[in-house]
Nucleic acid binder design. Structure first.
Lengths: 192, 192
DNA sequence: ATGCTGACTGACCGATCGGTCAATATTTGT
DNA sequence: ACAAATATTGACCGATCGGTCAGTCAGCAT
């Protein structure tokens, strides 16, 4: 099974974009790394912006699919939140380029990056609201705050290692302890 | 008292870099905004990279001066945490370039940014540990996780507006409601 | 007044940027 | 077997990039 050149372009684009950001990465750079000509990139993708969007789409699809499945497979809402946080942590741990990609997207004011996971957010928010109505969680907080909280913390845990490791090295030498503390604090915070 | 052209270059560089990022900002753009010629920028600074470093340097120096009194005097530790989070939120709200600069520094794996606020962290951690010992907070979590949590969320609230506003516009149209929800979730999460 | 220095300028440079296009190689459907 | 479609290439474009350079000019010490 060999990888198509189009896929190679996508792969290298992700690697380079998440390493240096959109503006710092040139098409020729991607071409060189992917072992193709610059022209081929413009054959497969309309322009640099569209390439960026396609890269985003392609890696996000695999996460969204699994997360959606998780939503439907777990009945207990509290356990669902717990599992979602852990799943996202593991996903990012295995794909550390992704939070970097998003971080660059935010700094470069990418307006589209929120649209991508909005459906996912919508569903998550729905489930939390239901749990709130059932009295399983406190009713007096916006569900978006909860989701935004854990996405943000997990992303930054990986992106800002150079910062937080100065605060306490153990949160990186023992990542399980970190994510456990975070998850339990969060869960306890939303209990009635 | 008039501002020197060199200072104008630094000021405009700071504004432009934090708005658009290093790569998106050209020297000509800075020159135009600062009302000087491109050549003058190269007269005062070796090259674009050195300009960036100098901007960062002066910015972080200012930050370090202002963040020292972030932990106010307050007897009740729970109330202290509450106040500190709100204070940091307001601080960043008034200085939205701060989280952006840190975000850039993180992506560049700048080792210095962790040392900057390490004293701050140290003090916060100490206060939390005391509260834990007094039985006012649960003992089974690492204080650093708590501080890292709220610093991260507040920073990203401002940096990733383009992302999260797609999830729910109200967290930006009503920032108080957002930070209240977050603070209460956090406080409830650490209670015994 | 002369000479020196640092601030400042405009013209200019090679390199690289994103992107186009015509031509060629390769795969695919019939 | 052949034509249509798709993949791939290299030569090329105007614009802009970071950066250089020779030189002007004002202020200041001697």
């Amino acid at each position: 099974m060999k990888i198509s050149k189009k896929q190679k372009i996508l792969d290298q684009s992700l690697a380079l974009f998440s390493a240096y950001g959109f503006a710092h990465v040139s098409i020729s750079m991607i071409a060189k790394e992917a072992g193709v000509t610059k022209s081929l990139i413009f054959h497969h993708f309309e322009n640099k912006n569209q390439l960026w969007e396609k890269v985003k789409e392609s890696f996000f699809k695999q996460y969204a699919e699994n997360q959606m499945n998780l939503f439907e497979s777990e009945k207990d809402p509290i356990e669902l939140i717990r599992k979602s946080m852990r799943y996202y942590f593991d996903f990012v741990k295995d794909n550390p380029m992704i939070p970097r990609f998003f971080a660059y997207a935010h700094l470069e004011n990418d307006e589209n990056c929120g649209k991508l996971d909005q459906p996912l957010m919508e569903r998550g928010s729905q489930l939390i609201k239901k749990a709130q109505a059932q009295g399983l969680m406190r009713k007096d907080f916006n569900p978006v705050v909860l989701v935004m909280n854990f996405i943000t913390v997990i992303n930054q845990y990986f992106v800002a290692k150079c910062h937080f490791s100065h605060w306490d090295e153990t949160i990186y030498s023992n990542p399980n302890s970190f994510i456990n503390d975070f998850i339990e604090n969060t869960i306890k915070g939303i209990r009635p």
